[in-house]
Design a protein around this nucleic acid. Structure first.
Length: 137
DNA sequence: GCCAACGTTGGC
DNA sequence: GCCAACGTTGGC
């Protein structure tokens, strides 16, 4: 089982939207590096739900419930989507600022590559963020 | 094969 | 809203 992080602009698709809907295809990724990570995802993997732009914090945990398939919103049929199901919220959102302030997180891709919207998360970082957010890993 | 233009993304 | 980072595209 692998760990990931998915970014979404809360104005477009927020954690509350995800919780309300339950399961939703994660569509619209148009970056090849991010798409490569989507292709590597398997059902049962877990991912942080991150609010980008106006949010800039990890707010919840989702499970990948369906592996990569063609993104129906891509007319060129070049990109893929996965199915994402809301699992639990973090009791306390973990902000980008907090992660940047702790050297333990300094080599997270989230900090290394700010414009990447889908990325893997190391198990040690996963556990630490869960502790900060006061939720089970 | 170089490189400028363009598109996507998200921190600031 | 601006711009930097990164990848892709196409003229030459």
């Amino acid at each position: 089982m692998a760990f990931w992080l998915l970014k979404s602009e809360p104005d477009t698709w927020s954690w509350d939207d995800q919780v309300r809907k339950g399961t939703e295809p994660w569509t619209g990724v148009r970056n090849h590096q991010a798409a490569g990570f989507l292709r590597a995802m398997q059902a049962g993997d877990m991912a942080f739900f991150y609010h980008s732009r106006s949010g800039r914090e990890i707010v919840g945990i989702v499970e990948i419930t369906g592996g990569a398939r063609p993104d129906p919103t891509d007319p060129m049929h070049r990109f893929v989507c996965v199915d994402v199901t809301a699992r639990r919220a973090l009791c306390h959102p973990v902000t980008l600022l907090v992660l940047k302030s702790d050297p333990f997180f300094s080599d997270m891709l989230l900090l290394r590559q700010p414009c990447l919207s889908v990325m893997p998360v190391e198990a040690r970082h996963w556990k630490a963020v869960c502790q900060l957010g006061e939720t089970e890993p």
